[in-house]
Design a protein around this nucleic acid. Structure first.
Length: 563
RNA sequence: GUCGGGCUAGCUCAGCUGGAUAGAGCAACAGUCUUCUAAACUGUAGGUCAUGGGUUCGAAUCCCAUGCUCGACACCA
């Protein structure tokens, strides 16, 4: 950052015989607490060359360095600590945020290149669980973060609308089902059939064969199978759309697995031409021994296709359709090997862009330490969680702010926001055991805490008459505001890091830190008092609101102005 | 068995490319609402960073080994 460069340049004039500006810049770090300064340079690595103690070196540097432009430069033990000019730096940050508004932190790194994101992808005829929430909200946040970094994301809901499970479902429906029952409560009824199928198949493995046979019929265009499939799919999609509506998440494409039915010959032919397709135990496979991976199965013994076949077709279609820069797959970590295989097969086929395919895995949500599973009935319905959260938010509002206008709307934004934020605040790969009380908490490190911080900031701005402060005097000498100002200045770098790490949690944690710093400031400083820094304080409040609102937006969470 | 993830305070987790006394939240205890929304703020207490080696001026962070745990391992997705 600019400040870092300023420090590095100042140091370079003293250390030009030892280190380059780039080297110095690399070594500069941020002290743990701001009473040690804003940026620090450790001198350990110069000890050998200069044959002096690090403490002495730090003291010597301070004696020689030009301190112009800094509040002060001091030696603390083996460190040279730099204190920035708070008035100047703070005013610059505030001015930039007030000028840019929601565009603060935008960059053009992506040069508008396409990045399809395979996300959400629920299975037809199964309810949406907490597990699908992860892929959905991580994918959505990454899409927002991509836009912020100048990319053009394409949100693809790769619906699980094809595969052997439909054969099984059809067998179950024909044995135990009724049309009226399904129509009354589609997904719950269908999933009931599915669970029963698996129970009965344990004692009667012949059912599995029947399931596979019906899937084969479906692939071969059997009329009854196709009608059933379409019916199950339509009913399911309606329920999914309802949930996406509540989450306010939209997609650019609903091309699921079935979409690739007529695009798989291309894959099979390509693999055949390259001599990669071999027969093994009656099935068609690609050997991946040289990648130290298990074989990729392309066609079953009965000729039906598999997940891998459809994913290969999808990858090729997306390359052709979007000419992507990167192709993201927000899919659970347990499928890691599948994506390694996918890339390996494409690579073997001579497609260099295979390297641009990126699996973005996430950890498991468990119940009582065990993996969720539709088959076993161990499942947490997303709708139930959302309902609970909104209900609780409603109670909270009636308790704390009963006169609030738009109560229903705000309760939705807070309740749903809490659930989304909870899923995004920790590192993707972390697994967590589901705990409703934890998910719908509104205190401490939570989404509502961030929302509340923003709502209070807006309350002050309202009281001040929402002044336009872009051209006001924005110098702030109040030391209590400094931590907040510094954090505000770090937002653009945070936006970049979130994308580089493919980690929405980077944004979530930033929002929590900024909220905490601001709340601390706000609790101890009076904003609305008439003195010559009132505009600057209000500008700080406004900047906090802008950046918190934008952070939440990136995560897919609303920032109500009142709550 | 092979491969991968995890192991930091009672619980849930931070800790950026190795650096200054290891930080938050929850829970516990003690405070703060006649003053900009107490969904907040302040303080107290709480840690052999799984274990054992190694590299380094310096390791929670890098390397090796061990343990525990979760997950994946061709006709499911």
């Amino acid at each position: 950052m600019d400040n870092k460069l300023q420090v590095a340049n100042a140091l370079a004039t003293v250390l030009k015989d030892q280190l380059s500006v780039a080297d110095i810049q690399n070594k500069i770090e941020m002290p743990k607490t701001s009473d040690l300064g804003d940026l620090a340079f450790p001198t350990f690595m110069l000890a050998k060359a200069l044959r002096k103690a690090p403490q002495q070196i730090a003291a010597d540097i301070v004696a020689e360095i030009d301190q112009t432009g800094f509040e002060k430069v001091v030696a603390t033990g083996p460190y040279v600590n730099f204190f920035l000019d708070k008035k100047l730096v703070g005013a610059n940050i505030l001015h930039e945020i007030l000028t840019d508004g929601a565009a603060y932190g935008n960059n053009t790194d992506g040069e508008m290149r396409n990045v399809p994101i395979d996300m959400s992808s629920p299975n037809i005829a199964k309810p949406m669980s907490m597990g699908h929430l992860r892929s959905t909200v991580i994918g959505n946040a990454l899409a927002n973060i991509l836009v912020k970094n100048g990319y053009n994301p394409v949100k693809i809901n790769h619906l699980g609308d094809w595969g052997t499970q439909f054969g099984k479902l059809m067998v179950a429906y024909k044995m135990w089902g009724s049309e009226a029952e399904v129509k009354a409560d589609p997904i719950n009824t269908l999933v009931g059939y599915y669970v029963r199928f698996h129970e009965e198949a344990k004692a009667n493995p012949e059912l599995d064969d029947q399931g596979r046979a019906w899937f084969k019929k479906l692939e071969d265009g059997d009329v009854e199978a196709q009608q059933l499939w379409k019916w199950f799919r339509d009913e399911s999609l309606q329920e999914f759309l309802n949930i996406y509506d509540q989450l306010e998440i939209t997609f650019d494409s609903f091309n699921g697995e079935a979409f690739y039915n007529d695009k798989m010959d291309e894959v099979v032919n390509l693999l055949e031409d390259k001599g990669l397709l071999v027969e093994s135990q009656g099935a068609q496979i690609v050997d991946l021994e040289k990648y130290n991976l298990p074989v990729a199965m392309i066609k079953r013994t009965d000729g039906a296709t598999l997940y891998m076949t459809r994913d290969l077709a999808a990858a090729m279609y997306r390359k052709r359709e979007y000419d992507f820069d990167k192709s993201f797959y927000v899919v659970g970590g347990e499928q890691r090997e599948h994506f390694q295989q996918l890339k390996a097969v494409l690579k073997e086929a001579g497609l260099a862009w295979a390297d641009d395919i990126e699996h973005i895995p996430f950890g498991l949500i468990t119940v009582d330490g065990k993996k969720l599973s539709t088959r076993s009935g161990r499942i947490i319905l997303l709708q139930d969680v959302l309902d609970d959260a909104v209900k609780l938010a409603n109670e909270q509002i009636n308790d704390k702010n009963p006169d609030l206008a738009n109560k229903e709307q705000v309760a939705k934004e807070v309740g749903v926001g809490a659930v989304i934020f909870h899923d995004l605040q920790n590192e993707r790969m972390n697994s967590f055991d589901f705990n409703l009380a934890e998910v719908v908490r509104f205190e401490g490190d939570t989404g509502p805490y961030v929302q509340y911080s923003n709502a209070r900031a807006n309350s002050i701005l309202r009281k001040a008459g929402n002044p336009d402060l872009v051209n006001a005097e924005l110098s702030l000498t109040d030391a209590a505001a400094w931590d907040t100002l510094k954090l505000l200045g770090e937002f653009p770098a945070t936006v970049r890091r979130a994308l580089n790490d493919r980690e929405p949690s980077v944004i979530a944690k930033y929002a929590l830190h900024l909220s905490r710093a601001y709340n601390k400031y706000y609790a101890n400083s009076k904003i609305l008092v008439e003195d010559n820094e009132k505009d600057a304080r209000l500008a700080l409040v406004q900047a906090v609101s802008i950046v918190l609102t934008e952070s939440l937006r990136l995560l897919g969470v609303h920032a109500p102005k009142e709550m």
